[in-house]
């Protein structure tokens, strides 16, 4: 009976995580892409993956990174690869920090999100700078605006990832999957 309840909770938790990523993908790729507020499309999927890593630890953060990365690559009309690897590694790294030295809270989530967004924008700029030869100064303004705009989404995503983290924490200790 106890085992059944445990499995059910795990299943519900997976569904809730999938729902979060679905909603954020829909928001980024289907709504904000048409609205183009400030002439930009924000990058929200890395923020969600980072939030999961902060509140649920290394392993779940890494898995969330894989899915967020695939969605990001698809959203950019690019072959799946760069963001899949990038967000998996940032998920693992942020999750490890949260499991060991970082305090799980808004400030750490915010700082981790800023760092991950900065790495993401650098990954987007890399081929343009090194293969197309566009000077980084020309890209810097768009990169900065994209990062700042995306950071605004940390506020609405925070309560959701914290609630998911607390729910998962009741099933398993943070950072551990069986």
């Amino acid at each position: 009976m106890k085992k059944r309840l445990y499995r059910r909770r795990i299943f519900v938790s997976i569904i809730l995580h999938a729902l979060l990523f679905f909603v954020i993908y829909a928001l980024q790729d289907m709504i904000l892409i048409h609205l183009q507020l400030f002439g930009l499309v924000p990058l929200i999927l890395p923020v969600a993956a980072t939030g999961i890593a902060v509140f649920e630890g290394r392993d779940i953060g890494g898995i969330a990174g894989i899915f967020a990365g695939i969605m990001c690559d698809i959203s950019f009309n690019a072959p799946v690869g760069v963001f899949t690897v990038l967000l998996t590694f940032t998920g693992l790294l942020v999750g490890t920090l949260a499991d060991t030295v970082m305090r799980r809270g808004f400030l750490s989530f915010y700082i981790a999100s800023v760092v991950v967004l900065a790495i993401s924008v650098a990954a987007q700029m890399f081929p343009l700078v090194f293969f197309t030869g566009i000077p980084p100064q020309a890209l810097a303004m768009v990169a900065m605006r994209q990062t700042i705009f995306s950071m605004l989404f940390v506020f609405p995503i925070y309560p959701v990832v914290r609630a998911l983290g607390r729910r998962a924490g009741r099933i398993l200790p943070p950072g551990r999957i069986r």
């Binding site: 890494g62 072959p79 799946v80 690897v85 693992l92 490890t96």
Partner: peptide
Amino acid sequence: KALISKKSIVIASVAVLIALSTFVSLN
């Protein structure tokens, strides 16, 4: 030590394998 464990290596390998399969398919 906390970063490198069996599970994290498996997760990272999955991501790298996905990227490699795309790279090989493309090229």
